[in-house]
């Protein structure tokens, strides 16, 4: 069986990760595929995975109690999906749905948490890669909130 190591190594998220760390991560990884329209996870479910998107497009949605779900962000090739596996109580805050056929590598969050606990240098390495992505997505969310393209009526 072909190992996932070369695929992980090529993904922007793991680029230049030390060999020993990569080997640890590979042990938690598996290939997954989602058909268009398929949910990858739903709000409230345990967040025990994290995904490296290899191909396709994933929508992060939130469903208001009434009305249709709203898409807040889409993720594509080279991006990562999900960081709730790192943050207690390890539950997803949103729905994630494949917009089109999506191939990804899933990493077992529990397995990763355990390895990070045992090897803090791996933990630090992963966190330093994740935090900028989390930060960027926060910034993006704020900019979306600004509604910069909206029409602002003149106060009379």
């Amino acid at each position: 069986m072909k190992t996932l190591e070369p695929i992980l190594e090529e993904h922007p998220f793991f680029r230049n990760l030390e060999k020993c760390h990569l080997e640890l991560v590979v042990g938690c990884a598996a290939n997954v595929r989602f058909e268009a329209g398929q949910f990858i996870f739903r709000e409230g479910e345990p967040a025990d995975q994290f995904y490296l998107i290899r191909q396709g497009k994933v929508a992060i949605e939130i469903s208001p109690p009434q009305g249709e779900p709203i898409i807040m962000q889409t993720l594509s090739e080279g991006e990562i999906l999900g960081w709730s596996w790192l943050v207690p109580p390890y539950h997803w805050q949103f729905d994630a749905k494949a917009v089109e056929l999506t191939r990804a590598i899933t990493l077992d969050g529990k397995c990763l948490r355990k390895k990070c606990q045992e090897d803090h240098s791996l933990g630090y390495e992963l966190l330093s890669r994740l935090v900028p992505i989390i930060g960027k997505s926060m910034e993006a969310a704020r900019l979306q909130l600004l509604d910069v393209y909206g029409v602002k009526p003149r106060a009379s």
Binding site: I60, I71, T74
Partner: peptide, 23 residues
């Protein structure tokens, strides 16, 4: 093309325009 927010049936991108740069 990307939009700031979309309904569930939108098949395009959602997010800030600069998120398109790496793509």
């Amino acid at each position: 093309v990307t939009v700031d927010s979309a309904k569930w049936d939108w098949k395009g991108n959602v997010g800030v325009v600069t998120a398109l740069l790496p793509r």
